[in-house]
Amino acid sequence: MASVVLENVWVSFPIYSAATRSLKNRLIQSATGGQIRADTVSQRIPVVQALQDVNLALKEGDRLGLIGHNGAGKTTLLRVLAGIYEPNSGRVATEGRVVPLFDITLGMNLESTGYENIILRGLFLGLKRKEIRARMDEIAEFTELGEFLNLPIRTYSAGMQMRLAFAVSTSVIPDILLLDEGIGVGDAAFLNKARARLERFTEQIPIIVLSSHSEDLVRSMCPNSLLMEHGRIVFVGPTDEALAHYRALRGW
């Protein structure tokens, strides 16, 4: 049973400057009581409250859209759901295998070949080497990259890298899928193919959370949405109403 529960989740980011990044400065500062260099090495590191008192419960079958303008906390929330950021306070409980699909080409090794990256990404997704080999042909075929798969992926175009990452990432059915932003996947022909695969893929996933600026995408995938503003949840409910609130907030 896949489920997600967030209770009173707070997340804050310290903003470090070059000076506060230095152990040397830190030690000098403590040796001088923080008096002399107080202007450059502030005792107080500025903190951004990225999430404030977020409560959320998702159960099987839920498809939730995240909307809000840049910096509202959507990505941070997704990373908390993925277990990448642990909150400063509050409780996060997820059940089931969580797969984050954020900037999907990040975390790939540019100097390694396409095949090597398929294996690497598969291992990150929790597959065994054997399982990846079993899927290799299917993944390779889907990417339509052919001989390119033997070359380091730094020789690929952005679209080709995207195809590769997309094909591997959608070869495992997770319990909870976290999607960030529209995943542009190259040319039109591939896009249709990708859309079909994405649909087949998403149908089988118990819980999906999608963060996007594209109203159409959110509307088509998620019956319910969550509107964020300054790290707080402002509204949760049917996507149309959430979008209406969003427009009202932005003064449209």
Binding site: Q43, P46, N88
Partner: peptide, 15 residues
């Protein structure tokens, strides 16, 4: 950590 935490508290100790 309790939620009465204020940004700007000594972050180091809180952490």
């Amino acid at each position: 950590m309790s939620s009465d935490y204020q940004p700007g508290d000594s972050f180091f100790l809180v952490q």
